[in-house]
């Protein structure tokens, strides 16, 4: 087994010996993970390997059956939910907006954890929404209805919504699904920019290995509920690992554009 212990990074978000599953069905056992601060981490692995389950537990949507997920050393499931929502945002897969909702109103909903009963909408909220919409380039769409947008625009609006939440940590479950290639790259470029400019700690589940290699600072490879390996793509990606994780016989070359590892499949591993 290839366990690449890259430089032990500092991380506010940690999973400690977590066992994850849904009523009766266990997905992962005894997982340990430290999400490196200020980096763009990407979880990869074949379908059903537990990527989304892990992400959901990091985003406290799934309570571990054993072990705990820690934020700054404190058990996440004991933190007040609104306070936690100011630290950690999560964009689930295939989020759906109610019909007729305007873009600006959807983005504004990201401000919920910052609002109180008596102080509902502040200048700060306004600034956060405007900034999130500027970053994602959806200001022009402010008055449009979300359901009338194209897939790429809609995804940018959803990202704006979680950005308006202004959390230093941000988890994204397959943010590029259902998007065409150009829009996939647009979303990934945006995420990288957020990471580089604002120092957000990002964790995304991605399907495309080559995109993962191109954009990730830190790759987390999973198979059958286990974390098989993690580290920088350049150190991590070997033909052996791809064979082990995806059961794929491949050739790894340098991506001619970005210089990152690029996986060229030969066929299924014998």
């Amino acid at each position: 087994m290839t366990i690449t212990q890259s430089t032990q990074a500092q991380g506010r978000l940690q999973a400690q010996n977590v066992t994850l599953g849904y009523d009766g069905r266990q997905v992962s056992e005894q997982l340990n993970l430290t999400v490196p601060d200020g980096r763009f981490s990407v979880i990869v692995g074949p379908n059903g390997c537990g990527k989304s389950t892990l992400l959901r537990s990091l985003g406290r949507l799934l309570k571990p059956q054993q072990g705990q997920v820690l934020l700054d050393g404190a058990d996440m499931n004991r933190l007040p939910t609104k306070a936690l929502a100011r630290e950690l945002g999560l964009l689930p897969q295939g989020a759906q907006a109610p019909d007729g909702l305007r873009v600006v109103d959807l983005v504004a909903r990201g401000r919920y954890p910052h609002q109180q009963l008596l102080r509902q909408w502040s200048a700060q909220d306004h600034a956060a929404v405007a900034e999130a919409m500027r970053l994602t380039d959806v200001l022009e769409l402010a008055d449009r209805e979300v359901d009338q947008l194209s897939g790429g625009q809609r995804q940018r609006v959803w990202i704006a919504m979680v950005l308006a939440q202004q959390t230093p940590l941000l988890l994204l479950d397959e943010p590029t699904t259902y998007l065409d290639l150009a829009h996939q790259l647009e979303v990934l470029d945006l995420l990288r920019e957020l990471n580089r400019l604002n120092g957000h700690t990002l964790v995304a589940v991605l399907h495309d290995l080559n995109q993962a290699c191109r954009y990730a600072d830190h790759l987390i490879a999973m198979r059958e509920g286990r974390i098989v390996a993690e580290g920088a793509p350049r150190e991590l990606m070997t033909e052996q690992l791809v064979a082990e994780v995806f059961g794929l016989d491949c050739l790894i070359i340098d991506d001619p554009v970005s210089g990152t590892p690029m996986v060229i499949p030969r066929g299924r591993a014998g």
Partner: peptide, 12 residues
Amino acid sequence: ALGEDLGRSLGV
């Protein structure tokens, strides 16, 4: 209304 998951991750 944004869904169970988003609702919870927004602190509801």
